[in-house]
Amino acid sequence: MESDYTSASDSIVRANIADGQRKVFQAPQNAHRVAGENFTFHCAFHFLQDISKANIYWWKLGNTEFLQQGTDSRKQFVRLRKGEASLQLLKVQVADSGVYYCGVKHLDNLFTNGTGSTLVVYVPPIPLSIKSELLAINASKTLIISCKTAAFYPDGINVTWYKDGFQTVTGIHTVKNLNSDGLYELSSCLEVTQTLRYVTCQVAHRTLQIPVNVTFNALNWNGVPNSGENKNFHRFQVALIHRFVLGFLVILILIIMIVVHFKRC
């Protein structure tokens, strides 16, 4: 990559007067990647027989300067044989989304820009978090369970709630916001008034191969058993402990009696 270059905007204007027989093709035309993956743009300009007599430039639409080798280690510039070149972005980030162009400048100073490639970087909404808040309303208790996603992109997302494995569509309040980074954040709340074992929040997004679940154990609200079954189980545990202690004492007494007997003998 040459260090003495004109600005990207100047070169794009000059491309309008380039020889009509000169074509610079780019691939893919449209693509998306999940944040953290690598992506490669391809540029072909087969009208040049001798690639050594041309300078190749890359730029992102909206920027006033060309992309340069060495300014960002995540950007790798490769000049291939037979009139081809590539730009590889390592561990893509949301800020990498945009339209990228490849341009070729020959020794006759004619500049031809490519057809452009659009990259959209997706961000999955994970990990999920779930928590609860116990509210006292008119002498009755309501458990509010909130499910929050990590920042994600693009917008489309589905949240489904399950009570003890059965889908529910009532008592749900969902809010979605756009943060300063251009990513979305979602918070969904479910009101629970009856006794349950567990509540599950399920999130589906185009970045996820399968929906992701997060489950809240609702057997105890604020540490207090909320069902007769739980109380019965607690009674069973207490009874079991009592029987264990009693059995231990019986065995201990028998051992003492045997030891005393042998000493007398």
Rank of each mutant, 00 (worst) to 15 (best):
S97R: 03
F66M: 08
Y122Q: 14
D108N: 14
W58N: 01
I130F: 04
L110G: 06
I126Y: 03
I51Q: 13
K53E: 12
K60D: 02
S97A: 11
A85D: 05
V78G: 04
S140D: 11
S117H: 00
V78S: 12
A35N: 08
T40E: 10
K91H: 14
Y101D: 03
E65I: 08
V99Q: 12
E37L: 09
L110A: 09
T118N: 14
G98L: 06
L107I: 11
Q68T: 13
L89V: 11
H32Q: 13
Q68W: 05
Q68I: 07
T118M: 11
Q76P: 02
L128D: 00
R81S: 13
Q88T: 15
H106E: 10
F47V: 10
V92Y: 03
N138L: 11
K91I: 03
A139Q: 15
C102L: 04
V94A: 13
H106Y: 09
Q88P: 01
T115I: 03
Q76M: 11
A35S: 13
L119E: 04
I56F: 04
A54L: 06
I56L: 11
A35G: 06
V92Q: 02
K105A: 05
D96A: 04
N63C: 08
I130K: 06
G98A: 07
F45M: 05
R79T: 15
S132Q: 11
N113Q: 12
F45W: 03
K60R: 15
V123T: 12
F111P: 00
L128V: 02
G103F: 01
E37Q: 15
N38T: 11
L119I: 09
L134A: 04
T118R: 13
R74G: 09
I56N: 00
D50M: 06
R33I: 10
R79E: 14
V94G: 08
H32S: 15
A44W: 07
L87K: 02
F111R: 00
S129D: 10
V104I: 10
G70N: 14
K91A: 15
F66L: 14
A35R: 11
L135T: 06
G103L: 04
G114I: 00
R81K: 13
Q88V: 07
Q49H: 10
I56T: 05
A139Y: 13
R79C: 07
P127K: 00
S52D: 14
N138G: 08
R74T: 14
N109H: 10
V121N: 01
Y57P: 02
T64H: 10
L67E: 06
S97W: 01
T64Q: 12
T40Y: 02
T40V: 12
V94D: 07
I126N: 01
W58Q: 01
